[in-house]
Nucleic acid binder design. Sequence first.
DNA 1: TCGACGAGTCGAATCGATTCGACTCGTCCG
DNA 2: CGGACGAGTCGAATCGATTCGACTCGTCGA
Lengths: 365, 365
Amino acid sequence: MVRANAGGSTAHGSSGPAGGTNVRRRPTLRMVAELAGVSTATVSYVFSGRSGGGSGVAEATAKRVLEAAEQLNYRPNRAARTIRTGRSDTVQLSLHMLSDPWSLAVAAAVNDEANRHGLTTLILADGDWYAALERVESDVAYLDAAVGSDEVRRHLQALAERGQRLVVFSETLEPDGYDVIRSDAIPGCYLAMDHLLERHTAIGCLVAEDAVRAPEHSRYTPYLARMRERGLPVVPEHTATYANTQASAFAAAVALLSRDDRPTAIYATTDFAAIAAINAAHMLGLRVPHDVAVIGVGNTPDAQSIAPTLTTVGPTDFYRRQAEIIVARALDSGATEPRLHEFPWSLVPGGSTDLDAPPRAVRTL
Amino acid sequence: MVRANAGGSTAHGSSGPAGGTNVRRRPTLRMVAELAGVSTATVSYVFSGRSGGGSGVAEATAKRVLEAAEQLNYRPNRAARTIRTGRSDTVQLSLHMLSDPWSLAVAAAVNDEANRHGLTTLILADGDWYAALERVESDVAYLDAAVGSDEVRRHLQALAERGQRLVVFSETLEPDGYDVIRSDAIPGCYLAMDHLLERHTAIGCLVAEDAVRAPEHSRYTPYLARMRERGLPVVPEHTATYANTQASAFAAAVALLSRDDRPTAIYATTDFAAIAAINAAHMLGLRVPHDVAVIGVGNTPDAQSIAPTLTTVGPTDFYRRQAEIIVARALDSGATEPRLHEFPWSLVPGGSTDLDAPPRAVRTL
DNA sequence: TCGACGAGTCGAATCGATTCGACTCGTCCG
DNA sequence: CGGACGAGTCGAATCGATTCGACTCGTCGA
């Protein structure tokens, strides 16, 4: 027991279980302190840049500490810091479908903004909203598409009560200890329908299954409402539903466009479904927008990376601004009250409905 | 100092800084223990399901503890657990571009597998590889596209030495305290070129900027090599470069396909570039594959969600199996030695090169 | 009747950092 | 020459959980 520890280079660790697993332990702040011949407090001050009782750490001391840390290849232990300070420098995201461009855009924007402020992004859950609630634990958590059920409300309240900072995206919830980002899609959906109705009467609808099951306050309603208002027939076969996958949306679009009485325009309740519809049209030899016009909902970045570009509706500059709100809340020291952040929607014109554009950018071949 | 603490319900906190910020503190294990009238050890045993010295906790005691926890809305503090046990139940991912379907597929697959085992996924960095290295700290970290430079090797070694479990995706590194997943794209790229060369001679190349700058062991080489081997002219204008964005790839494809001497086939070094090429072709009124055939590299899920489906090369069932390796390493108790995992590539036929398919799935309209 | 045993519980040390109050010196001013 | 002061440093408590050894009781067998 007299043996000093430290013996880092004794490479003969053969008495281990199954062959020499040389798991050298991670260096700690204490080791750095010992090597530099100072107290742990001093090392901590050096790394956090803060001052002790008096002023800062003397330059010579700091240098010695940094050299020791370098030599040991020391990195502070985040968990230890978190437990002491209560800050995790972490942003959690609960998204409903990572491969949907909307979720992806949110994730990318938040990750970007978070990194800019030294925070790390955690993908909490990809779909399973209720499971996500149980694991919330970070400086701030973002919850996508929070429905306003009492159960959800209770969960959120419980989290907020124990001091968890939350930003929820919801079209129905009100701020209540947490921020609410509201970007009400429904008025935007009416804009989309109005845009199509300028030129079309036979409009098909590509809609998420959930929305058909619970149409109230869903993106399905504007379709039904506008069609009825204009006295246009709502053909049941002109509504096709899709699940949360690209393939599903694609199949639904193919079904819709393969009909002999196919619509001349498609109102898709998400951009990704709209993009699937454009691809489906191309596959079937239909020209967009001349054989079929397509409009999406969400104004996701992907809307710009298809040809023709997608006409869509959505909030402008949404992802970046939302990311700023989330990160600001993470860094906030508690002064500002949680509030409602609203993002109005507008029409974002693209080529997929622009009948006046030349039928195709024809090239001389 | 005689005052018992515990006073949770004194709600008059008005002496606070700016208005009553009622940040009720998060309940701790100790509070649960006090409320249930047991020791912290017992509560801990109840929550972790483990036994103390003897056997388990008595059923009646456990019930009392759980009720107390429920009443306080207690959730264990992860950071505290992490610091004590050394496990973070976390998987970190460093990806080069979150919106690239390859990265996205990796992220989705790992997140899925991780959740299945009670782990959480952390997006470490989206692009900035070296910044990511500094923040590695989790049960296991996955690093995408590790180049074999000495500097990278040193960094990885340092991490491994302090016990960090690592899985790196690299075509050149060898296992050295960390797992290496190798799925050498280059042989696959030759397969892709060979496939095109069966029918085509005028082949264009859509290649990432980086690869052109440093062609050795890049996906550019197979293009150059095969063209030369076949005695085909390498037209400089038939090579277009793109940066790490959809828009950039799209623009490059448009440039390539707008030429009067446009190629009859395009070899794209990633699936996402290939998809951009298909979209570009459609926009320009070109039929795929009849006016121009397109092949991608990577076999990402997106290859299936475009029309025509993308012919590509890649490892099969790669994402899921890779995710399993990563998560297995996170859960591994140190018995298995890090090793090399290889995934051979093969051709994945799709519609984008299939000249024998009917020119278009024509519908009677 | 006594001792062994084991189920159930507890006390206290511990993980690695942060942070507050206290302490040690020079230095400077009166 | 003495005391105040402040820069720089340190010791020790603390965050919230885990976990090991020790302790308390019934119970059962000899």
